[in-house]
Computed example of a mutant assay.
Amino acid sequence: MKLFIYDHCPFCVKARMIFGLKNLPVELVVMLNDDEATPTKLIGQKMAPILMKEDGSCMPESLDIVQYVDKSDGEPLLTGKTNPAITDWLRHINGYLNKLLLPRIAAAPFAEFATPEARSYFRNKKEANAGSFEELKQHSEGFIKNVNDDLRKLDKLIVKPNAVNGELSLDDIHLFPVLRSLTLVAGVEYPGRVADYRDNMAKQTQINLLSSVAA
């Protein structure tokens, strides 16, 4: 199977996670951010992730991919209950997270920005919605303070380092991509349980963190 992705994209991380958790082989194909032709040819629109199954058919939507792969061998892993408190926490932090992340993503050495045109495409599209990246950067200190406050609240919700609620569930699929994205931001402070969970999930899913290029 092939998975067409952008490395920075949290939805793509969700789809990648299930392959790592189940230790299943998958060929990752990183598309250039301005490549509209490839996804349009595969599914009729520009979107990621896209799973190309062994029969050549293609499936979009991260959670559909997760469910398909998880159930494909008849031994699903994501059988744990979800916690409404995790959903609430994610809804809250996602309300402001992109304002902190987008300027850093646009400057980071992701493969989807391998050409100047691809990087400019991302920046122009995102600034049209989120506003000037230079202006957003000026508010970084306040956003980072909010993140650090919110991570302290999350710390109390983590049950085990290998599954946020004690048993793998969709909450893990939603939570880890956020924590991975945050490793792109210098100055974020991770309480003990959050750090252990983040590192353990990176190992379990075989997905690298972004600390080495944090800014």
Rank of each mutant, 00 (worst) to 15 (best):
G142F: 00
K203E: 10
L179A: 10
D73W: 04
D171S: 06
N146I: 13
A106E: 02
Q206M: 11
L78E: 12
C58G: 08
Q138E: 14
V164P: 09
Y68F: 14
V178C: 01
F176W: 09
D172T: 09
P84A: 07
D64K: 10
A214P: 08
I43R: 02
F113E: 01
E61H: 13
I207H: 04
S211Y: 12
C9H: 03
E189G: 11
H139V: 08
I86Y: 07
K145N: 13
K153D: 13
L77Q: 11
E54D: 15
T40D: 10
K14T: 07
K156Y: 07
K160L: 11
T87K: 01
L184Y: 04
E61L: 14
S120C: 04
D64T: 01
L102H: 12
F19A: 02
N83S: 11
F4I: 14
S212K: 15
I105Q: 01
F143E: 07
I65F: 05
C12G: 15
E27A: 10
K125E: 14
T38I: 10
S120I: 06
V188F: 04
L21A: 05
L77W: 14
M31E: 14
V30A: 03
S140C: 05
G56P: 12
N23M: 00
P116V: 05
Y96T: 03
M17V: 09
V29F: 08
G131D: 08
L136Y: 06
T40W: 00
V29K: 15
R123C: 01
G74A: 03
N33P: 01
S211R: 07
L175A: 04
V178K: 11
M17C: 11
H92D: 13
K46L: 01
D150V: 05
K153N: 14
I173G: 03
L3H: 06
P60N: 09
L102Q: 15
T82W: 03
R91H: 13
L157Q: 09
N94M: 10
M52W: 06
Q138C: 10
T205G: 10
D155T: 07
I105R: 01
M31A: 14
P39K: 06
L179G: 02
K203M: 14
Y121E: 06
L28K: 14
P10E: 02
G44L: 10
Y197C: 01
P49L: 09
L157F: 00
N200H: 12
F176R: 02
A106C: 06
A111S: 13
P49C: 08
L179C: 01
V188Q: 06
